[in-house]
């Protein structure tokens, strides 16, 4: 337990650092959002209007320290400022609207990719020397293929040519969002291609990662002993070999879970999916600093939470980490 408390303390410190940097960086950069807006309108803005906008964006001439305290206070109330792109919508609303789509799509796809990829890696290591080794070059190839290329290929084949799946949006225009079966079916139908993209593009990493560790683990004495004990192959493979081989893979899985929140930007763009990745792109295009800042903050916190979960998983899965260090 002391181990977890220490980790928690470390993550809180990191979170504070992330929040503070998030506060400092825009303020240390030259210019402010209002200047950007004014520049966009080619300067045809009344000084009073500029003043009003400055107030709306919360830009003040107060001391940096005072601004920092205000910022922390606002953050505690969940206020991240107003988006410029979607003015006058609050950044927190923009994020709250897009985050569930991303977490649903990318999260589920990442999970599927992890489960399938890990199982395949285990099997390929177990049956090395058979035809399954043929998957290896394919996996290495897929490992090198970027997400957007897979997305474009799928859009072209299944979306445009065969027209089996829709190629944009998260649900059909003809259904009302709500807790209905019709809406759920539409969401699943629209999520199919982007989800497959993510699964295909990220699975190779899982296969290769798991296979490599698994091959090393199979050489361990305890696996040989499990075999000598006359246990069934299945038990030797999962309870002895895979159970140990998965430990080094947990960290990379946790990291990828953290980046789920960041969205799979390219995939979301290709499929015009209304997730946080698309929002981030819009924010960047419109120099929407409050929005970018808000999204970055959410991403950093998500990565931290995912890492903490990985630590938790480690404690559950590896008894050696439970040992109290004296």
């Amino acid at each position: 337990m002391r181990f977890l408390a220490r980790r928690l303390g470390f993550y809180l410190l990191t979170a504070w650092a992330a929040i503070t940097l998030n506060f400092l960086i825009p303020r240390l950069m030259p210019g402010d959002p209002v200047e950007l807006l004014v520049a966009r309108m080619k300067g045809n803005v009344e000084p009073e209007a500029i003043d009003a906008m400055r107030r709306a964006f919360g830009i003040s001439d107060a001391s940096l320290w005072q601004q920092y305290l205000d910022y922390l206070g606002n953050l505690a109330r969940g206020e991240l400022g107003r988006s410029i792109t979607f003015f006058p919508t609050e950044v927190s609303t923009v994020i709250a609207d897009s985050l569930p789509w991303t977490v649903g799509l990318v999260g589920v796809a990442t999970l599927i990719s992890y489960l399938i990829g890990t199982s395949l890696g285990v099997l390929m290591a177990w049956r090395r020397g058979t035809w399954l080794d043929g998957v290896l070059p394919a996996a290495t190839f897929m490992h090198a293929v970027p997400y957007f290329w897979v997305a474009l290929a799928l859009v072209f084949v299944f979306g445009v040519t065969l027209q089996w799946f829709p190629v944009s949006r998260a649900y059909g225009l003809d259904v009302m969002p709500g807790m209905t079966g019709e809406f759920a079916a539409s969401v699943l139908y629209h999520a199919a291609l982007p989800a497959v993209t993510i699964v295909i593009a990220s699975m190779a990493d899982r296969i290769l990662g798991m296979r490599n560790v698994m091959v090393t683990t199979l050489g361990e004495d305890y696996v040989v002993m499990a075999e000598a004990k006359g246990l069934t192959s299945r038990r030797v493979m999962w309870a002895y070999a895979a159970r140990n081989a998965i430990l080094p893979n947990i960290t990379s899985f946790a990291l990828s879970l953290g980046f789920v929140v960041g969205g799979s930007v390219l995939t979301e763009i290709v499929f015009s999916y209304p997730g946080i990745g698309s929002m981030l792109l819009k924010g960047v295009e419109n120099e929407d600093f409050p929005l970018m800042q808000g999204i970055f903050l959410v991403i950093s916190l998500a990565v931290l939470v995912a890492n903490f979960l990985a630590d938790l998983a480690y404690v559950v899965l590896d008894p050696r980490t439970r040992q109290e260090s004296e």
């Binding site: 004990k229 006359g230 159970r243």
Partner: peptide, 25 residues
């Protein structure tokens, strides 16, 4: 048959018990 033969008739104690015991069990 081999699975049944193993351990019931012939058991093995390996060189280093550190490595021959499953660390997570």
């Amino acid at each position: 048959e081999l699975r049944a033969f193993r351990w019931k008739e012939l058991a093995v104690v390996f060189q280093s018990a550190m490595n021959s015991l499953n660390p997570v069990s």
